[in-house]
Amino acid sequence: MNTHKLKQKAIDKDFLDEIAHLPGGERIIDCFQCGTCSGSCPTAHVMDHTPRRLFAMVKAGFREDVLNSNTYWYCTSCYICTVRCPRQIKITDVMYALKRIALKERYVRRKNAAGAFYSSFVDIVERDGRSFEPELMVRFMLKTDPTLLLKNAVLGLKLMKHGRLPIRRNRIKARNELRAIIRKAKSESL
């Protein structure tokens, strides 16, 4: 864990409110810094700030520092923190919210490849209605580091050898209906 000093100069007083108004974020104000989340998190050791510390930063209004951290990008959505939180904060959902804000406001740094992965996934699902793993991985690698294509060729061949690599896209019939649902949801976005 990196314990460097926070860089942000001005406090963002609205940040806590912003998070607390998201579905799942209501109870963030109740965090009493017990650290159960950090102790349970499988990836806390690589985070700039552990989840506990991040919540302190959210409450104190360190919006820039929070969004510039790698913490939420390392969240694997395993939900163990959410299950164990004695204050019933939906921590995983707060991490999702931070990812969304970061993507929207372009806080995504190249080394945090998760953003590229997620948006490739969404593009494919919006087009076909279903995910298509080979295309997802190729798109992601092209977006982040094309040498990954070579580095992962063996893995791809291994899957192909065992008949586990689909060649054809799997599309749903009601793609227009699905898109209408997505469009409507987009216009109503929370």
């Binding site: 959505s77 997620y118 969404v122 279903r130």
Partner: peptide, 15 residues
């Protein structure tokens, strides 16, 4: 259709 998995939720909530 795809459930959205963890990826979709990271980009858009309501969608």
């Amino acid at each position: 259709n795809c459930c959205g998995a963890t990826a979709y939720m990271s980009v858009r909530e309501l969608m």
